[in-house]
Nucleic acid binder design. Sequence first.
DNA 1: GGTATACTTGATACAAAATATCAGTAAAGG
DNA 2: CCTTTACTGATATTTTGTATCAAGTATACC
Lengths: 146, 146
Amino acid sequence: MDRKAEKILNRIVQNGYRRTNARQAIVTALVNSAGHITADDLADNVREKEPHIGRMTVYRTLELLCELGVVRPIFQGTGAAHYILMDNGGHHHLICNRCHNVMEFEECSAAMVMEKVAKQFNFHISSHLLELHGLCEECNEISSHQ
Amino acid sequence: MDRKAEKILNRIVQNGYRRTNARQAIVTALVNSAGHITADDLADNVREKEPHIGRMTVYRTLELLCELGVVRPIFQGTGAAHYILMDNGGHHHLICNRCHNVMEFEECSAAMVMEKVAKQFNFHISSHLLELHGLCEECNEISSHQ
DNA sequence: GGTATACTTGATACAAAATATCAGTAAAGG
DNA sequence: CCTTTACTGATATTTTGTATCAAGTATACC
Ligand SMILES: [Mn+2]
Ligand SMILES: [Mn+2]
Ligand SMILES: [Zn+2]
Ligand SMILES: [Zn+2]
């Protein structure tokens, strides 16, 4: 069992939910997918090992993980939600408006803002998402000499 | 005609797209909606004044505005995408994982990170989205004394 | 271990949201 | 005007997400 998956499953139990086979399989598949996956794609992955697990259960587990702050749905070109892992406290994307390419980065100075805003709103922050939008190198070149 | 809408329409023209009645009506309705609206809700709004405008055109216009970096689709509890305006360069949300309540804030120190990352990836940043996730005051209380 | 209980599951049906297609329309430029 | 080509909107279809409910199973308690 993956360490990361184990951590998430513990979180499920700690919040009063049950540790079931389905949830174990789904969380494991999610962690192995390295994020950025749609619910239906995840369901397909899960079924490679556990063919009996239903699509609904995957949807419901993702919903639960949202509530626990473990994942967050985002748009990524297509209509279906893509789920990203928020388990490390932060997730940072550089997203091209044109080709929808997504690059990851780690730098982040959200800490100060977070503290300030958390106080102001009495909000308990568990994670954050920073998306920088614009044009990637290639798309920028295309649009400049056209 | 709203100043904000005018600005967006200019942007459409400057990028080689046509300024049509449909796009004018849609952009105006979008600006008046103050953001956080789904495609279908926007279509309904548009039709109050221009009943002949089709749903497809609204979807396509939103797609175009995404490409121009004017809006960004996000998830907000429900299944349908909610479009938020990125026209001021940044958009900042505090989102409760449980009740899905969304609060706006302005503080942001993303500037430094942005500069650094832009250089590193040769990326042309036009806007950003910062989402802080966690539990709002009420939801936090509920989960602590249960 | 056995049992009661509430939580969870998955098949099915359904609703909502997004996309593909295409003939007709109108914006832009000359 | 007239031509060209991007754009539109009706329609059909696919994809994605949700509601329901009988059957299954994790957990607590004995
Ligand atoms: Mn990512
Ligand atoms: Mn907002
Ligand atoms: Zn690009
Ligand atoms: Zn809340």
